[in-house]
Structure formats: structure tokens, C-alpha cells
Amino acid sequence: MARVNFKDTRKETRTLAGKPVPVVVTARFARRGRLAVFADGLKSLLSGMRLTFGYLARPSAIVTRQYPENRATLKLPERFRARLRLKFDEHGYQLCTACRLCERACPNASIRILTRPGTLSKNELDRYIWRLDSCVFCNACVQSCPFDALEMTGEFEHAVFDRRLLIFTLNRYAGPPAGVLLKEPDEAKRAAAMEPRDVYGGPVPLNGADLPSVKALAVRPQADPARQGAAPAPGVPA
């Protein structure tokens, strides 16, 4: 028969491999009388019940957040890593130069960059393909980007009914990055250098460039306009 007193920890110094280590020895059970143990046991049960009742009686203690209802007020931290996005400048021109550093930094080949020979530059981005279904959100792509052209956003509602819809084309147009485009004063020439790309246009019909483990589809799934994100970039012919 025994009972423990939590405050009954004792500090001492022990040696381990010749070095002194300050330790705190946890409380052990002390020998006590039967009745005292019984009374203490009963008291401990009652104090536990008092604690839980305290929470029951305090509605302010509720921590549940009603998720779909609180969408309007739900704010994830700005650094939250849920969805990869390409950054665009104020003209709607992408910053990505298709240098493939992110592709190389990605630990599990979730990023695939397709390039094409361009009119304004030798090599330009055709499709920036991001596979959400294999992404581990390790942030290596964002960190490795020397042009600060990528970011992770807190958009976390990823659920779809067809997992092929988890393969995104992140760029809105195939063409050179902002730096190259802005050197070209002629608006018409700029527009001609850009060819629109939609979110699901790329890896779903695959355009001949196969991603590992993704087979070409016979039927192209209907792209959900709500998931297309922003409107096409200005200067891009519709």
C-alpha cells in the first residue's frame, strides 16, 4: 500500500563517465496506512472528476473549429505550404526562366519542366508541370529557385474526384519570362511570343512528353473553370 507525492522529487548530482550530471529523481511511492491510501485514492478520483467537470461547465473551453462553415474566417499562416504557385509580375508575366533547378531539387520528381525553342529567347518555358499527387511539400523547389519565381500558398482544399486532376500546369502561358519580355518594346510581338496554357492542358493529354507513371488519356477530362485560378494573363490572346 503506497501513495505518491509528486512534489517529492529530489535533485542530486550523479556522475556518468566521470562527468557530473544534475538529475532530478522522480517521485516514488511512499509507504502509508491503508485508510490514508483509500482516502487519497478517493480524493484523487474526485479531483479528476472536478477537472473534467470544469471543462464541461465552461463552454469557452471548446476548441473545435467548424471547418467548412468557417471558411470565411479561416486564415492559414502566410508561410503555409499547401500548393505550389508560379509567381507573376504586375504585367502578368511569369518570372520562371525554365532553368530546371527546382526540377533537380525536387526529391521525388513532382516537378517536370518542358521547354521549347522561343522567338525572343533561345529556350523558354512550355509547361511547368507540378504533380500534387506525389508532392511532399518539402519546399525545396521554392528554396532552390534563384529567380524567386515560385511560392507555396495556403490553398489547401485539394480534394478531387479524379486523381489526374492533381497534375497541374502552373504557367499560364508558354513563353519567355518577364525579364525577356520587357526588353521587347512592341506589345504585339510580346503577345505573339506567348501561347496560353490552361491548368489541365498539359500532362493530361501529355502532349507526347510522358511523365513517369502517367499514361495518356483517351478522353480529356473537363477542366473545372473554378479551379483554373486567375483569369488569363493580360496580353495573352484568348
Partner: peptide
């Protein structure tokens, strides 16, 4: 419901 309130939850809603 009672379990939920003991545990700072809302329970079935």
C-alpha cells in the same frame, strides 16, 4: 454530446 463537452469538443453538429 456530454463526452464532447468533457473533452472541449462540440460533438455531433
Amino acid at each position: 454530446k456530454i463526452a464532447a463537452r468533457f473533452q472541449c469538443r462540440l460533438g455531433p453538429m
